[in-house]
Design a protein around this nucleic acid. Structure first.
Length: 291
DNA sequence: CAATCAACCTGGGTGC
DNA sequence: TGCACCCAGGTTGATT
């Protein structure tokens, strides 16, 4: 479900709503959501700590506790976080709100942080150091950080020799993009999703850099994309779905050239692109039979 | 090293 | 209605 802009939206709200809160207990409804620890160990280790900060790395939500400990959440495909207000005594107001609750962390103030996850792909970690979580330790550069420069993208494209779409989806290479924003970025940059990364020209790589930054910034401004499950901390859907150019728009007209948008499979992921705006180089062209 | 596919899960949508 | 099948925003690990 959530890519970086959705996680960023949630983290911004977490900063406002749970920093300073002290944990009284944790209810684990589905032990599988807690990585490596039993529900008893998890509860025992988290109780009494205060929320010191909320930050994000790639698609990971990182809640810093005091005394020092990191509560790290990966939302997987359908994970959701919400904060129950003190007024509602930890009893969900409606049945739909309680659906798929896996973990509830309650605070002294009677507020509570609720983790819901229909498909159970999400995970909550309680660690001393981010390095204890393999993907978090090995995360590529943040796509929107000030230190990520066009030449870094160019070098990274040249270093790997892979199809551009799976490369951009790989969080070890670049942190933040998921299926929606990779398709949107490649459309914006006019690059076919199967293009081999190392054959991209400097001009194409620079276009891709600008596209990624533009697409992610816009998505954050629109508070994320809600296709189906995504909700922010308040339970509100995002608004970015209204400005998508290709994702899930197969059969419709490309807003740039008017030709029909195609859907195909790349790296096992549903992939959307405009075959006119995003042509594949002549060498590889014979290989495609998409659309 | 890179590509593909299955696996982890639940549920919504579609077509017969 | 029921059922089979496809699809889903992520990541990992086995296989080719």
């Amino acid at each position: 479900m959530p890519e970086m802009p959705e996680v960023e939206t949630i983290v911004q709200a977490l900063k406002r709503r749970i920093v300073g809160e002290t944990i009284v207990d944790a209810l684990v409804e589905w032990p599988g959501s807690i990585a490596r620890l039993s529900p008893a160990e998890f509860s025992q280790r988290i109780v009494g700590r205060r929320v010191a900060a909320a930050t994000r790395s790639g698609k990971f939500t990182i809640i810093r506790l005091a005394p020092p400990k990191l509560l790290v959440v990966h939302l997987g495909m359908t994970g959701r976080l919400s904060v129950d207000e003190a007024s509602e005594p930890n009893a969900p107001t409606s049945a739909s709100q309680d659906a798929h609750t896996r973990v509830v962390i309650r605070f002294v103030s009677r507020k509570a942080l609720r983790f819901r996850d229909m498909r159970k792909f999400g995970r909550i970690y309680l660690v001393d150091d981010a390095c204890e979580i393999p993907l978090l330790r090995d995360l590529g550069p943040e796509a929107l950080s000030d230190t990520f420069k066009p030449r870094m993208l160019r070098e990274l494209l040249r270093r790997h020799r892979r199809q551009i779409k799976p490369l951009l989806l790989d969080q070890h290479v670049l942190a933040g993009l998921g299926n929606i924003y990779v398709d949107e970025s490649l459309w914006q940059a006019r690059i076919h999703p199967r293009t081999l990364s190392h054959v991209l020209s400097t001009e194409e790589a620079n276009r891709l850099y600008r596209a990624i930054r533009k697409v992610l910034r816009q998505a954050i401004r629109n508070r994320g994309t809600t296709i189906r499950d995504y909700r922010d901390l308040q339970g509100e859907p995002g608004e970015n779905q209204g400005v998508l150019s290709v994702y899930r728009l197969q059969g419709e007209q490309c807003r740039r050239c008017g030709h029909v948008i195609c859907r195909t499979m790349v790296a096992g992921r549903s992939t959307h692109y405009c075959p006119t705006c995003q042509p594949l180089g002549s060498t590889e062209y014979a290989m495609t039979s998409d659309c």
